[in-house]
């Protein structure tokens, strides 16, 4: 049985990631493919998201600058973009729904930093919206 056919460029790239709580969690900036060790066709293993992945797609001087900035912000030792394993992808429609919470993703660091160091200090930052 053949399922729905997706074209990566048309149906996947640049789409919104939404976590299990309905929170916005970045874009599908790039895809990671892996060639299985035993041979056979490559499989999509992860969504790459955040400035590290975006910078490589932008290319040029701006891309290089953004990549350098992204590498500096990363606390890991590897210079690679943040990954969202394809195993946590629940559904692909006008957005890509994930089956995990945003805080568990490595794409969440910049947001957490901004909250902890800047916006979280303003009075009322934690108040419920409605």
């Amino acid at each position: 049985m053949s399922g729905r056919v997706l074209e990566a460029g048309l149906h996947l790239l640049d789409r919104q990631l939404i976590d299990v709580d309905g929170r916005l969690a970045g874009k599908v900036d790039d895809l990671e493919l892996e060639l299985p060790p035993g041979g056979g066709p490559p499989v999509v293993t992860a969504i790459l998201s955040g400035p590290g992945a975006l910078s490589r797609r932008l290319g040029g001087r701006l891309g290089a600058w953004l990549e350098a900035a992204a590498n500096r912000l990363r606390d890991g030792d590897e210079d690679r973009p943040a990954r969202v394993s394809f195993a946590v992808v629940k559904r692909i429609e006008s957005a890509v729904d994930l089956s995990v919470a945003k805080r568990e993703l490595e794409t969440n660091r910049l947001e957490a930093w901004t909250r902890e160091h800047l916006i979280g200090h303003l009075p009322g930052a934690g108040d419920a919206p409605e």
């Binding site: 919104q16 990631l17 929170r23 916005l24 969690a25 970045g26 874009k27 998201s49 945003k102 947001e111 909250r115 916006i119 979280g120 303003l122 009322g124 930052a125 934690g126 108040d127 419920a128 919206p129 409605e130």
Partner: peptide, 11 residues
């Protein structure tokens, strides 16, 4: 693609 809006807490 990051979280926006007044429908969530500012934090």
């Amino acid at each position: 693609g990051f979280q926006w809006g007044k429908f969530v807490r500012p934090a």
